[in-house]
């Protein structure tokens, strides 16, 4: 007992909220350990946002770097010039709002379709025999580890005018003229669904795997037809997986750049692509910063709040 109480400050600290009560020599050690990742993230994750905010308030300039400074040192007087013009422009030009709303629409619809495609797959995997389950899971995980860029590229060869899909449809006599599929919104949806399908299947699978067979039997025993059983038991019990999977698809899809750039047309407005073009094509760093700030405010912050709420709900359950 004695040795326990002497050498267990770590355990005590975990249970007792006040770190002040710990032996003094340990406090600097622990703070030091915790400060390494905290400082790294502070420097390379948090401060950059302050820089973004600062530059979004500057003006474009033909200079290196291509923006004006906020602080002017004019011999004796220091002047601070804040330029809200970028933000004003964001709201005046409908391009940005349209791109924002369209990104949400595209991400939401693709998430829904991904869910519909992923559900039967996850269900069949979860109900397979253990040996087959490993094989099927590996088949899902394999694309997940393969280069994302190359998988999007695969669809370019698949969907183009003289691509595989058109060849098959033509030879089956279903169409007379090759369809234009590449560089359309359709291709963007396909690309997003395809890329993020494994992200949906895996959380759904782990929710469905926990589903006890006897619950399904109980539902049947109490008078449920198979479809009722699905809606009344399977869906409510896999809800955590549905929510987790949907977030994993929706979040990256909203800010997606590569898929609309490769598969979409120039009219496919998505906010991530607008930011990219603002930066790389127009070289308007302050405007790109303003777009980033607004994305942070109206996209990332709501998503983080949603995720936190979800996490808390799960903890409570």
């Amino acid at each position: 007992m004695n040795s326990m109480s002497q050498s267990a400050p770590l355990a005590v600290g975990r249970r007792r909220p006040s770190w002040l009560r710990l032996p003094g020599r340990l406090i600097p050690g622990r703070s030091l350990v915790a400060s390494v990742p905290t400082l790294w993230l502070g420097l390379f994750f948090l401060i950059p946002f302050a820089v973004v905010l600062k530059i979004s308030l500057a003006e474009t300039a033909i200079a290196v770097p291509p923006y004006t400074s906020l602080f002017e040192w004019d011999g004796a007087v220091a002047a601070l010039s804040l330029n809200l013009g970028n933000y004003q422009f964001l709201f005046e030009d409908s391009l940005y709002l349209d791109a924002y709303l369209n990104s949400i629409k595209v991400a939401a619809i693709s998430t829904l379709i991904t869910l519909i495609i992923a559900f039967p797959m996850a269900y069949v995997i979860a109900r397979a025999t253990p040996g087959r389950r490993v094989v099927l899971l590996s088949l899902v995980i394999l694309p997940f580890w393969t280069s994302f860029l190359l998988r999007v590229y695969a669809w370019m060869g698949f969907l183009k005018k003289n691509g595989v899909v058109n060849d098959v449809l033509l030879s089956l006599g279903l169409i007379d003229q090759p369809l234009t599929m590449l560089q359309t919104d359709f291709a963007v949806y396909i690309g997003i669904i395809y890329t993020y399908l494994p992200f949906m299947i895996l959380p759904l699978y782990s929710a469905l795997e926990k589903l006890d067979d006897s619950l399904l039997e109980a539902a049947e025993d109490l008078g449920c037809r198979p479809l009722q059983r699905f809606w009344l038991v399977v869906v409510p019990l896999s809800l955590p997986g549905i929510v987790a999977g949907s977030l994993l698809v929706f979040i990256p899809a909203v800010g997606e750049f590569v898929i609309p750039a490769l598969l979409g047309s120039s009219d496919t407005l998505m906010i991530g692509r607008v930011l990219w073009d603002e930066f790389f094509l127009n070289r308007d760093w302050p405007m790109a910063s303003a777009v980033a700030t607004m994305m942070l405010l109206f996209l990332v912050v709501p998503i983080m709040l949603l995720r936190n709420g979800q996490g808390r709900k799960e903890e409570a359950a």
Partner: peptide
């Protein structure tokens, strides 16, 4: 007769109470 139409009910070993 399928299970959902039988005049038979079952109490499961695990109880199988719907957690939701």
């Amino acid at each position: 007769i399928p299970a959902w139409k039988r005049p038979v009910n079952m109490m499961f070993q695990s109880y199988a109470l719907f957690p939701h």
